[in-house]
Design a protein around this nucleic acid. Sequence first.
DNA 1: TTGATAACTCAATCGACTTGAGTTTTTATG
DNA 2: CATAAAAACTCAAGTCGATTGAGTTATCAA
Lengths: 391, 391
Amino acid sequence: MTARSDTVRGANAGRSRSHNRRVVLDKVRDAGKIGRAEIARATGLSTQAVSNIIAELVADGLLVEDGRRSAGRGLPALLYALNPKGGFALGVEIRPDALLISVLDLAGQELCALRETLDTTSPDWVCTRIRDLRDTALRSARVPAQKLLGAGVVLPGPFGTTGLSDSASELPEWQQLDVASWLAERLDLPVMVENDANAAAMAERVAGVARELHTYAYLYFGAGLGLGLVQDRRLMRGAFGNAGEIGHAMVPGPDGAVVLEHAVSRVAAQKHLARRGVHATTGGQLETLYREANPHLRQWLDRAAEPFSHAVAMIENLLDPQTIILGGAMPEGILDHLIDSVTLSEHSVSNRADRNVPRLLRGRSGPMTAARGAAALVINQRFTPQIPAGH
Amino acid sequence: MTARSDTVRGANAGRSRSHNRRVVLDKVRDAGKIGRAEIARATGLSTQAVSNIIAELVADGLLVEDGRRSAGRGLPALLYALNPKGGFALGVEIRPDALLISVLDLAGQELCALRETLDTTSPDWVCTRIRDLRDTALRSARVPAQKLLGAGVVLPGPFGTTGLSDSASELPEWQQLDVASWLAERLDLPVMVENDANAAAMAERVAGVARELHTYAYLYFGAGLGLGLVQDRRLMRGAFGNAGEIGHAMVPGPDGAVVLEHAVSRVAAQKHLARRGVHATTGGQLETLYREANPHLRQWLDRAAEPFSHAVAMIENLLDPQTIILGGAMPEGILDHLIDSVTLSEHSVSNRADRNVPRLLRGRSGPMTAARGAAALVINQRFTPQIPAGH
DNA sequence: TTGATAACTCAATCGACTTGAGTTTTTATG
DNA sequence: CATAAAAACTCAAGTCGATTGAGTTATCAA
């Protein structure tokens, strides 16, 4: 499914321009407002080049002029900012039981979120549903179709047939398909496909706690537990697109080694509760139980702390991220509780004096993170210089 | 020590050319011999552009013409190959007790390897020793100094003050220093600094089992256990250059959770043997014990298998590499034994039908891997297109 | 023998960045 | 308050490097 880059492409004038557009957009994005001269200094481009690129971006509607700023002597700089309405992205999350749609603007604001239950998951049927929901969403968000920059699609990983494939719960009919090009043709849009954790990581980068981070990990609570890895602004996907399958790692727990996601995940919590006669099928119910300080849930949290701490230590030492973000389909209170209850290893490369970000953060994107992240993939791509790869 | 990229640089004609030179070199390297037209097709450049670049590379001595190849009709292609003598790299490994030097040619062949015991490790003293050994090595390898492309330096990680810093065993005087620029000035060469595992990973890419791989992990047996991560030809260094500190991960073992490198590392084996009255301080002694089927060593290997298997599973599921390479200061027989004794989890993203590389490989670079890898960093850099970053 | 095919070269063109001179606006200074 | 320094920006020319298209050469197949 996920072809890997075996050859890197050469550069030419056109590809330089496209790279430089991204560089400029990225700089504007992270500065908020910024003048040409400052961009030129930061990027090593001449002010003239920046001027030309900005003129183009303004003409395309991606940037807008936004005031002046005087910094001491000299002509005050004309500032530019992102035009949130300059482009939009469609996010699609396909689950075995439901279809979720999100529309984001360039600034990462969610303009519309839709959800629909799926009875069948055949690609053709799902595709017609996506098209319907897309149209509904665009109407409600008042977004003209031609301003859609692309679509991101989240499918349950892992991709390809691997030892983790567990076809019962997943989307067997989709595994054989080159989803990106299949959907691109039918939606008439560029399409990017990712797993939930990677998408969620991008949601936080585009409009969440990771806005100013370039290297971080995102622990995604879905059915199981996934990890999205961002290194230097780009997703680390591994050789086959399946990096981050942390849920199956064995970690030490209170009663010996356990599979991480058997100890720390929403399903794990629900099973723990069910065995004690407490049934919580929705996130809302879990949240209520947490607020009511349900003793069984507390017990589960207490038992989850140790394996969770080991997972955090493992991620820190293997990946040396700026921070680890927690999010996904788990009530915020519970995520915060996990963060508070973790034993942060002193024996970690992340235990450093000069850090300016907490070692753990809770994400902001809430339960629709994956669909939102799917759209964020598209937006992030516009802002992140790529090494052009593959054919 | 390791400044991180906060801004990506813009492209211009000159930087495009430098990118394209790397792209062409990389293609020649992995094809062995190749003609202009094929490079053009593979990279998306015009044949004319490839011609110009090749002319430049030939003039610089990096490529040589190497025969013709006829593929059916049409003019047979003039083939080009790397000129191994077109450039050389110096590799330096600085350990608390010794200094190791390696000189590689462009093809990754080692022309000279030197080792010297260090009594003191003050930067000034070490620097003079490096200069001396460099001169000796260049003389013995008959390499003119002006053909040195740069120097790679391996220092014991982790970099910066972290929870893993264990200053007793390391090089405290070096921690405060910006080693790369400090040495660059004194050696009058571009200098790159990495930890041992990352360097070792590059050694295998430049002239070992990873020649044709782009995404893999390297488990490095030094004093402890480190992990070098290569994703899409580039080292994954984490936010602070300390990614891959796997040795401190807690993994399940035969008697409960253990620190991985307490179970699987050269020091672990030596301690195990010492407790049983067998003293093996050198790699050679370990190798002899292994060949003699020493029961204590066998017992250690048996006990190491489980934690090692967990580590492998963890790496596979977190990073989805093409393969995991084992190497470093551990006798080959023992590495092979570990590879044979590992229980490869079926429950892994690496368990896939379409793989064409074994899940585990032993590296080829032997005990001087890190110094050799240091030099390989320089060579790899010439071949690997970079996203230009930072100021 | 002849034509198709492929690799390669030459010369012209083009796109995008850089350079340097000049304009405008603001602030600091005497 | 006048003036000079400083900074942002624009204009026009120059340069670098890739592309394009026509032309040459060598090989193979019919």
